[in-house]
Amino acid sequence: MKRKTAIILRYVILVLGAIIMLMPFLWMLSTSLKTQPETVKIPPIWIPKHLMFSNYVNALKEAPFLRYFINSVFVTTVTTAGQLLTSILAAFAFSRLNFYGKNILFVIFLGTMMVPGEMLIIPNFVTLSQLHLVNTYGALIIPWLASFFTVFTLRQTFQSVPDQIYYAAKIDGASDWHYLWHVLVPISKSTITAVTVLQVIGSWNAFMWPLIVTNTENLRTLPVGLQAFTSDAGTNYALLMAASTFVIIPMVILYVFLQKYIIAGISKTGLKG
């Protein structure tokens, strides 16, 4: 009896948590189907009188979303691939190679994780402008080609692989390079998937940085493009939410398919993998 109560209580808490997490998304869907006056009505309404599916068509007409979409896909792909490559190499160096100053270097990099991202906006912008990269794809991509968070996460995983596997590979005739790509990376598949998905989501949702370093329509990414619905006269919430729904769909699909890896990769530290 006591156990049953505990189970019920557990599910009640979980359901409440889930509802709170889902609320903004449900509100987004609801608003995207409202008429303009309904969006600002007080008290708020959850279910519009007429479902305005036309909002979705109108939203896409409002701005060149196809172009934004291509930009987002391009920037996300290149950023993620590049970051993964640099991080895997750095994590291997930090976990397996011995070189002068390795530990000091690691601590310094670790320190950079404590610096809030907002503080880096101005120095990064100044650097890019002096390199004449402002308002190019380079500005959207280059600053994000290295991430110490990814390096750190991968290093922890690489270090958990027993030394003997490395020695066995050496004896079997594998070079460090071969060991890294044919043994270590496949073994660390779940962590690599997790950091990849996190990076894809982060890159896809990036707003502040693309907004600052680009000023032409051709270079806008989806989150920046959503600005189109905000003007001096106010915000068209219905269209904005309709467009937002489009923007998050790819990430939702990605998460649904890979959630097993994401959860495993993140919770690995301290738990039995």
């Binding site: 003997q164 596997i165 020695y167 066995a168 073994i187």
Partner: peptide
């Protein structure tokens, strides 16, 4: 001792 087989 721990076999060190490639798990993948």
């Amino acid at each position: 001792q721990n076999y060190a087989l490639y798990p993948h």
